[in-house]
Simulated assay, not measured.
Amino acid sequence: MTEEANTSGWDAIDAAVGELYEDQEPLHYGTAIPYMLGGPDPLNGISVYKVDTPIPHWHFITYGFSELYEKESEDLEHSGYGFEMTFRLTRSEGESTPPSWALNLLQNVGRYVFTSGNVFHAGDYMDANGPICLGSDTLLTALSFIEDPDLTAISTPNGTVKFIQMVGITGPELETMQTWNTRGLLAAFVEFMPKYVTDLMRNSYLDIPSVIQAVERGIEEEGSSTAFLFIQQLAWTSPRKRILQKNVPAELQIGAKQAQIIGKILRSRFSKGAPLSLIGSGVNITFEAGVTPSFSEDGNQIKVVVHEQAVLELAANLRPVEQTFEIASLPGILFRIARTEITDQDGHVIETIG
């Protein structure tokens, strides 16, 4: 006799979803070769349910971000990464199987998490740097994350598991989330996006009067919830490294793609007296409100103190154009906007900004 495999984590997810869909048998897409044995797909499987209300859609549920079998991590409170991902996508009449691109997208998000160790929480967002459905003309080029409206957190023998729903959004909607917050904007969308069902063919919701009012009120009352931004093209050169040159300022470099949104978020954060940290490879630059603009260095931790005039001047100059500039209200720093090259999965440049 052989001992039965422990599938308690998997079974707990099945039980939670079973309460929602009762006797419906899902379409399940498993992984042929396990990731730990060199397979390309990190998730063990994805189940997809056919849903008719409030609008016809597919409901995808992942298996693999949490611990599905034996407990392996030392974190007794959470199972694996502590969540499973869900995704709701509009379903056309007569569509009998879900589109494969959505399955691939979930596996790609899985690869990002497994490779980087960065865990998604409700309220997060991510720029996809292109259409979420490759090769389509959809306006949805980013992802946001919120609690699944039908699946609450569960307790399993391996720890708790939350169900985080992935929602497709446009580029301008991503920027609005960054200058306000994800929860607020999605709440303003829900009247037009029931249960946060992603529709590839939709236009931006930012032109709808009720959404415009919600955004303006939210930014004014709450400011931006974005306390930090991960910046790929972030660099800081200390003036001490140019000791042979006189009166040379420090240099702060950022990429053209993120230049403008940094200015917008900085203004929104400053209006509420909140700091903003830019996090790059080996450097962390934090902007804080103060009376006298200045900067200080502590290893790779850089603190830049700004006042209202400095924020206004900086935001006005942070544009997606390759350039260098200095501002009178924040002396001692040369700002460099570097050209950004966006590449596809094969490393080919598909867009240049700046």
Rank of each mutant, 00 (worst) to 15 (best):
residue 1 M to Q: 15
residue 2 T to M: 14
residue 7 T to Q: 07
residue 9 G to F: 00
residue 12 A to E: 05
residue 14 D to L: 09
residue 15 A to V: 09
residue 17 V to I: 05
residue 17 V to C: 12
residue 17 V to S: 02
residue 19 E to V: 04
residue 21 Y to P: 12
residue 26 P to H: 02
residue 27 L to Q: 08
residue 27 L to Y: 12
residue 30 G to H: 07
residue 30 G to I: 11
residue 30 G to Q: 06
residue 43 L to N: 00
residue 46 I to N: 00
residue 48 V to N: 01
residue 49 Y to H: 06
residue 56 P to H: 12
residue 58 W to C: 01
residue 58 W to I: 01
residue 62 T to M: 00
residue 62 T to Y: 00
residue 63 Y to H: 11
residue 66 S to E: 03
residue 66 S to M: 05
residue 67 E to H: 04
residue 69 Y to P: 12
residue 69 Y to Q: 05
residue 71 K to A: 10
residue 71 K to S: 04
residue 73 S to P: 10
residue 77 E to C: 15
residue 79 S to N: 10
residue 80 G to K: 02
residue 81 Y to G: 02
residue 82 G to M: 02
residue 83 F to L: 14
residue 85 M to V: 11
residue 86 T to S: 13
residue 86 T to R: 02
residue 88 R to Y: 02
residue 89 L to G: 00
residue 90 T to Y: 12
residue 90 T to L: 11
residue 97 T to S: 10
residue 98 P to K: 01
residue 99 P to V: 02
residue 102 A to C: 03
residue 108 N to H: 13
residue 109 V to L: 09
residue 110 G to N: 05
residue 112 Y to H: 10
residue 119 V to K: 08
residue 120 F to Y: 14
residue 121 H to T: 07
residue 125 Y to K: 05
residue 129 N to C: 10
residue 130 G to I: 11
residue 130 G to L: 14
residue 134 L to M: 15
residue 137 D to G: 14
residue 147 E to P: 03
residue 147 E to D: 15
residue 162 K to C: 11
residue 163 F to N: 00
residue 164 I to R: 00
residue 167 V to A: 01
residue 168 G to W: 00
residue 172 P to T: 01
residue 172 P to Y: 03
residue 173 E to R: 02
residue 173 E to A: 08
residue 177 M to N: 03
residue 178 Q to S: 13
residue 180 W to Q: 01
residue 181 N to I: 02
residue 182 T to H: 07
residue 182 T to V: 09
residue 187 A to G: 12
residue 189 F to I: 08
residue 189 F to M: 04
residue 190 V to I: 13
residue 191 E to L: 04
residue 191 E to P: 11
residue 192 F to L: 06
residue 193 M to Y: 12
residue 196 Y to G: 02
residue 196 Y to K: 06
residue 199 D to V: 03
residue 203 N to L: 13
residue 207 D to C: 03
residue 217 R to S: 12
residue 217 R to N: 04
residue 217 R to P: 08
residue 218 G to W: 01
residue 230 F to M: 09
residue 232 Q to H: 12
residue 232 Q to Y: 09
residue 233 Q to I: 06
residue 234 L to M: 09
residue 234 L to H: 01
residue 235 A to C: 04
residue 235 A to W: 06
residue 238 S to E: 11
residue 239 P to M: 09
residue 244 L to Q: 06
residue 246 K to M: 04
residue 248 V to M: 13
residue 255 G to F: 00
residue 258 Q to V: 11
residue 259 A to I: 05
residue 261 I to Y: 01
residue 262 I to W: 01
residue 266 L to P: 07
residue 268 S to N: 05
residue 270 F to H: 11
residue 272 K to Y: 15
residue 274 A to S: 14
residue 277 S to D: 07
residue 278 L to C: 06
residue 281 S to R: 08
residue 283 V to T: 10
residue 283 V to K: 10
residue 286 T to M: 06
residue 291 V to I: 08
residue 292 T to C: 09
residue 292 T to G: 10
residue 294 S to I: 15
residue 295 F to S: 14
residue 296 S to T: 14
residue 298 D to I: 13
residue 301 Q to E: 10
residue 303 K to L: 10
residue 303 K to N: 04
residue 307 H to A: 15
residue 309 Q to H: 08
residue 311 V to D: 05
residue 311 V to A: 15
residue 318 L to G: 00
residue 324 T to Q: 15
residue 324 T to C: 15
residue 330 L to N: 04
residue 331 P to H: 15
residue 332 G to V: 12
residue 332 G to L: 05
residue 336 R to Q: 03
residue 340 T to F: 07
residue 341 E to V: 10
residue 348 H to G: 09
residue 349 V to P: 07
residue 352 T to G: 09
